[in-house]
Design a protein around this nucleic acid. Structure first.
Lengths: 139, 139
DNA sequence: ACTTGACTTAGACATTGTCTATCGTAGGAT
DNA sequence: ATCCTACGATAGACAATGTCTAAGTCAAGT
């Protein structure tokens, strides 16, 4: 696990118990926790960690580009540690389950200049929505 | 304007002053208001309309498929009256401006079966992110 | 015009996120 | 090893967005 921690240290981050715990909780594939879920898990390892610290730490990781923010439903933002590996998301509309997926093709190329309104486009997010197998059976 | 109103009436909706005002406020292209923005504009036409009614009405329009919910930033959801005309969104990361865009190609076709994890996929949302011309000049 | 069930209202409450003032501590300096 | 100090952590107030409830109101069919 966490070369995430190594990358952060390499950028001159002061290493604290709180930051270590947040990075550890976020580790893994298909991990898309909300800030409060991260907090809950962090508390079980470091009971006195505060909500503000978790929010701050997640925000800094996002700023550094080490963690991606994912807004799949207009509710709480989710945090995805796979920022270094480009991917998109597949979301179950019933239970909210999220999987990382890797579509073929480049959606960026699909947007003609006439449809760019002079914007400088930096990235594209694709969200596939549907029903997951386990929700499909329990109609 | 609103065949939206006609469509809603055709579905057995009871027509009230509040619902009419909400539908009118939402009319137009490149309209992506938050619920509270809709409420503010509705109040100027019908001062006693309540926040709860606006939230309820928007929610019902979404359920009926007449209005699309757009979550571009993990903050307030925005409401897009162009549900009947498929399109994607282009968002300015600085000022939050949103434009409707129509990419070529079909992102649905870009997701191989092996990447679908058994999901039944019903739709795809594509969000292009960048900087709009007016934000680009005011560095 | 009446009646009724659907709609609206005000405001409490819930969830998610931000800010501030104060305290603590990581890590370099000595 | 100890000390300093700037940066990080903390509690809790506050803000923004969304949901719920109990009671009043009204659209539309009869």
């Amino acid at each position: 696990m966490s070369d995430l921690l190594e990358r952060l240290r390499g950028r001159g981050w002061r290493m604290t118990a709180q930051r270590r715990v947040v990075a550890e909780v976020l580790d893994g594939d298909h991990v898309h926790l909300t800030a409060d879920e991260v907090h809950a898990r962090a508390v079980s390892r470091l009971p006195e960690i505060s909500r503000a610290t978790v929010y701050n730490t997640l925000g800094e990781m996002v700023t550094l580009g080490e963690v991606m923010e994912v807004a799949t439903d207009g509710r709480a933002k989710r945090y995805d540690p796979n920022a270094h590996r480009p991917h998109q998301h597949l979301v179950c509309g019933r239970c909210g389950a999220i999987r990382d997926v890797h579509p073929a093709g480049d959606p960026m190329a699909d947007l003609p200049d006439t449809e760019r309104f002079g914007f400088t486009i930096s990235n594209v997010e694709v969200t596939y929505r549907g029903i997951c197998p386990s929700c499909a059976t329990t109609a």
